[in-house]
Each structure stands twice: as C-alpha cells, then as structure tokens.
C-alpha cells in the first residue's frame, strides 16, 4: 500500500516537475525508465539476462524516425510502426534465443543485437554514422502541437506511465506468477506442467515491444535516431540501470534510470570521467546494495545488518541474517537436471 502511495506522489511530482527542471532531460529519464522496466520484466521476473536489448530500443527508434520523416506518418502511427517492428524482431530473436540457458542466452542475444547494429550501420535508410536527423514531432491526434517541449512532456509522461503500468499489471497477473516461478526454479515449473519456453518467448516479445516503444519515444524527444541506440553500450546501460535501481522491483528500474541519466547529463562537462564515476557507482552498488537501491531500501534493517557484516563489523541484530537459508535456496533452485522444455 505504501508503495502505491509513493508511486502516486512521484506521479504528482512528475506533473509539476517541468516548471522547475528542463523538460527534455525529464523526458529522457521517463524514456529510459520505461526501457529499464521493460528489461526488468525479463530479468527481474523470468530470470533471463538479455544482453541485446539495444536491438529493440534501436529498432523502435529507427523505424519510428523513418515513418515520421520519410513516410510522413502522424505521431501516433509513427510510434506504432516502431513498436510493431520491434515486436516482430522480438518474435524472431525470441524463437532463436529462449531455449538457451544462462550465459548462452546472454551471448546469443548479444550476438543477434550486434547483427542488428551492422544492419543499421549499412542499411540505406538509416543514414549510417549520421543517423536520421531532424525528425518531425508532429501533433497529438492532430490537435496538440508537439513542437512545444511542454506539450510533448505530458504526452511522453502519459505514454511512459501507461507502459510502466502495463508492465506492472503483467507482473501482478497469473502469467507474472508463472514468470516468477520460472525465474526461481525452472525445473520445478516444468514438473508442474508449465511449458516454460512458451512463457519465456511470450515475455521476451512483451519486453521487446515495450523497449521498442521507449526507443520510439526517444526519437520524438530528440528528433534523432542514431547508432547510439543500437550500440551494445546501450544494452549494457539498461542492465546497469536495472541493477542499480533494484532488479525484480517495480520502482527499481525507474530509480536506476533516473540515477544513471542524471549522472550522464550533469556530469557531461567532466567528459570521459563520467564513465569512471559510473563504474565506481556500479562497484559500490554491487558491494553495498546487492539488491539495488530500491531493493535494499525496502528492507533497511536487513540491509544495515548485512552491510555491517560485510565490512567486518559485528551485527547489531539478534540473528546472523534476516532471512537464513535464502542464499542456499537460490543455489538449489538451479538444479543440475536440465531440459529443453
């Protein structure tokens, strides 16, 4: 309940924010919050670490940019074109990738995404190194002029929130429950009669669709589709955002996206040092916030105890750990018996 109250407070904050903060920066945060939430649907619940989500993000960008600029699609249809394209790509990649386990899944998704990078580098419509520039933003339903940053701000806010809400509903559904079970103990899910490949494919496609929507929105915001969106750096960044914020939590990817985008924007003047700072933060997160910022702060007592223990101080609490046996169980969940389905 408290989490919902917090969420509502954040939404209200978001509505008044553009009067205090540069709206384009905020829109960038929302877009990445949606992207990270889509990624988290896959990693945080089904336990699938994709290292190629840039392919969907970039496809959303390029196709939307092309549709808006060359085909002259209206705003809504332009976004839809991007989402449809990334969903289709998700079906294709998903069929190839979802039967692979663990590191092989990460590797094959990376490989497929790199293929897409070269496609977009070479394809005649993408403009190669230049990208697709000065993409028109258009109007919302032919009524609201989106050339105004403030107008666009509320549209991007609404679409991002709607996307994140859909993801929330998926997580909190019977289907989401099956995903969690697969993430926690795939062999047991199979023995209960779940064809886990089908579920993995379904969630992979959903994740691709929302990633594509995020990419499409980014194009409208910056009026530019470039190779940055399909580069493997982008795949890494979304992993980083999700882990920093808290994998498997609703707010985690949003917080993670806000932290990383803020760092990149406000530390831009220090140049290459931004990467060093980003790396240091990642190290700190891994050492002290293993479940991410949101993951740890939702249980501050246990966080304090484990962190003190990790740095070698005596635990102030009664027990050695808040939840004994947890670590053991995660290990047990990965059993030696493996199956194709």
């Amino acid at each position: 309940m408290m989490r919902i109250a917090l969420f509502v407070a954040l939404v209200i904050l978001a509505i008044i924010a553009p009067f205090f903060v540069y709206p384009v920066f905020l829109m960038k945060v929302f877009v990445f919050a949606l992207f990270a939430s889509a990624f988290n649907l896959l990693l945080g619940y089904a336990g699938l670490l994709s290292f190629g989500h840039a392919a969907f993000f970039g496809t959303g960008s390029y196709i939307t940019a092309h549709a808006l600029k060359v085909w002259g699609f209206p705003f809504e249809m332009g976004l839809l074109a991007g989402v449809v394209a990334s969903t289709a790509l998700g079906v294709l990649f998903g069929l190839i990738a979802v039967r692979r386990l663990g590191i092989y899944f990460a590797m094959i998704t990376l490989a497929l995404a790199q293929m897409m990078y070269f496609v977009y580098l070479q394809a005649p419509f993408t403009g190669g190194e230049d990208g697709i520039q000065s993409v028109p933003r258009g109007t919302l339903l032919g009524l609201v002029d989106l050339r105004s940053d403030l107008n666009l701000y509320y549209v991007v806010l609404a679409i991002s929130l709607a996307g994140i809400f859909c993801i929330y509903r998926i997580v909190k559904s019977p289907f989401g429950q099956v995903l969690r079970s697969i993430g926690q103990n795939p062999d047991r899910s199979v023995s209960l009669g779940y064809s886990i490949s089908t579920y993995k494919l379904a969630v992979y496609i959903m994740s691709a669709a929302f990633s594509g929507l995020a990419g499409a929105l980014l194009v409208v915001v910056f009026q530019l589709a470039s190779l940055d969106e399909v580069n493997w750096h982008m795949s890494g960044e979304v992993v980083l955002m999700t882990l920093v914020g808290g994998v498997g939590t609703l707010l985690g990817p949003i917080v993670g996206a806000a932290v990383i985008v803020t760092l990149q924007n406000y530390l831009a003047e220090v140049g290459q040092w931004v990467l060093v700072i980003q790396g240091s933060i990642f190290v700190i997160i891994v050492l002290a916030f293993r479940k991410g910022i949101v993951g740890e702060l939702s249980d501050p007592e246990s966080w304090l105890r484990t962190t003190l223990r990790r740095v070698g101080m005596r635990s102030p609490g009664p027990g050695p750990s808040a939840r004994p046996g947890e670590a053991v169980d995660l290990g047990q969940a990965r059993q030696p018996v493996r199956s194709g389905d």
């Binding site: 926690q184 103990n185 199979v190 169980d329 047990q332 969940a333």
Partner: peptide, 24 residues
C-alpha cells in the same frame, strides 16, 4: 513426450533436493 506435457497427463515428479519457489 516433453516433460511438461507429461505433467499435464498426470505424471508428476519431485526432486532429490528440495524444489520449492523460494521467494514465494
């Protein structure tokens, strides 16, 4: 048959080490 299909036919297995969904 695939293992999941078998479970749906009414043949259900357990595992040597405990197989629960730990975070549920």
């Amino acid at each position: 048959d695939r293992p999941a299909a078998l479970a749906r036919k009414g043949l259900v297995r357990s595992f040597q080490i405990s197989a629960v969904f730990p975070e549920m």
